[in-house]
Design a protein around this nucleic acid. Sequence first.
DNA 1: CTGAAAGCGCTTACAG
DNA 2: CTGAAAGCGCTTACAG
Lengths: 347, 347
Amino acid sequence: MKHKKATRITIKDLAQELNLSTSTISRALANHPGISDQTKELVNGVADRLGFAPNSIASSFRSRKTKAIGVIVPRIDIDFHSRVISGIEAFAYKSGYHVTIFQSQDSYKREKEIVKILQTKMVEGIIVCLAMETKNYDHFKKLLKSKVPLVFYDRTPDSFETNKVMINDFESAYLATEHLIQQGKTRLAHIAGNQTTGIFKKRLEGFKAAIEKNGLVVYEDLILEAQHLSYQEGVDCACKILDSSIRPDGVFCANDYTAAAVIQTLNKRHTAIPEEVAVVGFSNYPIATIVEPHITTINDRAFQMGEATGRLLIQHIEEDEIDVIDYQVITLKTELIVRESTAEKRH
Amino acid sequence: MKHKKATRITIKDLAQELNLSTSTISRALANHPGISDQTKELVNGVADRLGFAPNSIASSFRSRKTKAIGVIVPRIDIDFHSRVISGIEAFAYKSGYHVTIFQSQDSYKREKEIVKILQTKMVEGIIVCLAMETKNYDHFKKLLKSKVPLVFYDRTPDSFETNKVMINDFESAYLATEHLIQQGKTRLAHIAGNQTTGIFKKRLEGFKAAIEKNGLVVYEDLILEAQHLSYQEGVDCACKILDSSIRPDGVFCANDYTAAAVIQTLNKRHTAIPEEVAVVGFSNYPIATIVEPHITTINDRAFQMGEATGRLLIQHIEEDEIDVIDYQVITLKTELIVRESTAEKRH
DNA sequence: CTGAAAGCGCTTACAG
DNA sequence: CTGAAAGCGCTTACAG
């Protein structure tokens, strides 16, 4: 006798067992209204007893619904993205969807490959945070042409309109900068992110706008760009800024790693924070409350961004008859969390 | 005329277009050996021209291969897990698999729900890091009975043998503790993780073993348990330890958050690190090189753990005929990264 | 090297 | 409230 692979129980088996049609079994399992409660109980009972597990692939194939959404992120192991994904998964799960994840590794080539894979109807909708390299959006336009619901978050296309979820980077930077001004700071520096990326451009703009609106001077020499906003780049920028002839009394950093770097550099130089130099970060990473003094920063609400992105996508998946909406742009509120690096007395 | 949904191109359409059978089209697209190169070129050309995208659901349904693996983690937005997932995705992607992620939120109930969802043949194999609450493994045993390949990582079942990928927690803790002893430290403290979890129990055991092996005394009063190993718990434990009558000169922490907490607490008390008290952490989180002094810690190789887990699972999926292997346990090497919190001179 | 045909396990209009 | 029947888009043994 040959080794026989465990054959799975199907609705056919249940039908045979109960002398009912497969139609009835299928409907009973789906809790269809037109089936008597008695039959439903009977079916569910036998299903349990025989250890029936529905074949979701067959079901997806037939119904053309996979209940799957695809997510393309640059990298999963970046704090911001892992929190967004967590929000997406949490919302998707309670809506009966599951989430399949791909990393573009910030590569345009790989992003295109992934889009191609996702075009096979494996997923009902796609969420994307663009790869750093991506400047051409044809692969996504093709997707849209075939009516696949698509939502971008954070890093979004700049040359065409589509569904997006973002935070108000301009306003957040404006808020952060104005807070420094309110603390009496007048010579402000900024460690900026990659200026080919929209969100970092907006943060720089918000920084400048707040300064100008308050009648102060924008010192271009105090604005430095850090490609990856890493801690080490932050240290380098901090040294340059602090050694500049215009000695700054406030620094706004485009993320918390660089803010932590500025703070540690100041600490080493025994410069009083915030009295001599105040520091504001961006994102509210865990380090913001570990570094001393704790970092005043912008709460970027990554988890909520994930939830909002998931909600928007699922809405588009399920209400595709509402063809009236062309695209939707959601901007989330942020908040300034004031901590010791700008305001409170250090104990 | 009613609005007609964009009907997808199928292999039938390609067959018609080329006056070939669907069998040939299917084989040509799959690059089957028994098809002439000329035909393959022809088919691929027309497929491109008509914008054919294969229906992977139909294919999965028919071939019984989904090329999908499911991953159940407590939470995605924990640094360790996000790095493991990144490793899993990276390995899976280059092996032609994709990864669907679920968060158990450390809930036993939710973990069972997810397992039930995954039993629908949606995935070909499953990777799990157990929920904190989980003490009963029946849901996984059922999975194994139905021959679904299953691999656990990090937090693994303690009462039954199965595929696992772990680091050597005992040995790592032993190494870390012995390093403190080599620095001349004799009164050692330990901030331990939840002792109902195997890995944290092993870390405590390794800590004790190193002390005993070196002829020193284990001070039970200097061993504190922190449920979640959070920064705040770390601060609380640090205060208790430092105010104890046996003043410790070395602290081994079960993660880097609590190690950072100990360091900051020592800094506030103006206690010299490492001269008066040396500190070792665990995991090599980003904060390890941000906090001053930088933290000596164990590199837990999370990304590599993800790769190894993915490799092991896919091996089991693809070589299921190799029934000889019952289960496999892989233990990864760790390394001690020595930094200023124990050894180097602080500049 | 290519084709005819069966069938994977469901769902769903249609009929009663 | 239930059933008979068609069919989703592929893959694959079998035949030539």
